[in-house]
Computed example of a mutant assay.
Amino acid sequence: MSPESDGIDDSQVVLYRLVDQESEEVLIAAEDLLDYFMEEDREPPETVTFVRAHQVGRARRKTERAELQVVDRQGATIGAYDIGRVSAAFRPELVPSGADRPDLGYSFLGRTCEYPWAGEIWRQWAAMGRPVEPGEWARHPSDWHESWMHVVQTAWFDSGRSATRYETGGTAVIDGSGFTTGDGFYCALGEAVNGPGGYFGWNLDALFDCLRTMRRDEASPFRLVWRNVAVSQEALGSDFTERVLALFEECGVETELS
Rank of each mutant, 00 (worst) to 15 (best):
E133H: 15
S147R: 06
S147W: 06
W122Y: 15
P134N: 05
T164Y: 05
E191H: 08
G178Y: 02
E218H: 09
R123P: 07
G198E: 02
I121F: 08
G198M: 01
L224P: 06
R216E: 11
F179C: 00
D205N: 15
G169A: 14
D143S: 14
G169H: 15
E234D: 12
Y186F: 14
P116V: 11
R227N: 13
P221H: 06
G198W: 04
M149N: 14
I121N: 07
D209S: 12
G198P: 08
T154E: 09
R130T: 13
W202T: 10
T181C: 04
M214V: 02
P141E: 11
E136M: 14
G110H: 04
V231C: 06
S220L: 14
V151N: 03
R165W: 04
G197A: 03
G119N: 10
R212E: 14
A118T: 11
E114V: 12
W122R: 01
T171Q: 12
E146V: 10
Q124L: 15
P141C: 10
W122A: 00
V193G: 10
V151T: 05
E167W: 07
G110D: 01
P196W: 04
G170W: 11
A155T: 13
A126V: 01
G170S: 14
S220D: 15
Y166P: 11
C210P: 05
A118W: 09
T168A: 15
G197C: 09
Y186W: 12
S147H: 05
L189D: 01
P131W: 05
V173N: 08
V173I: 13
V231T: 14
E234F: 09
T181A: 01
W202G: 08
C210H: 01
Y166E: 10
L189S: 07
P134R: 11
D209E: 13
N203F: 05
Y166I: 09
G190W: 00
G119C: 05
G195K: 02
G201Q: 03
C187D: 02
D175M: 03
A188V: 05
P116M: 12
W156D: 05
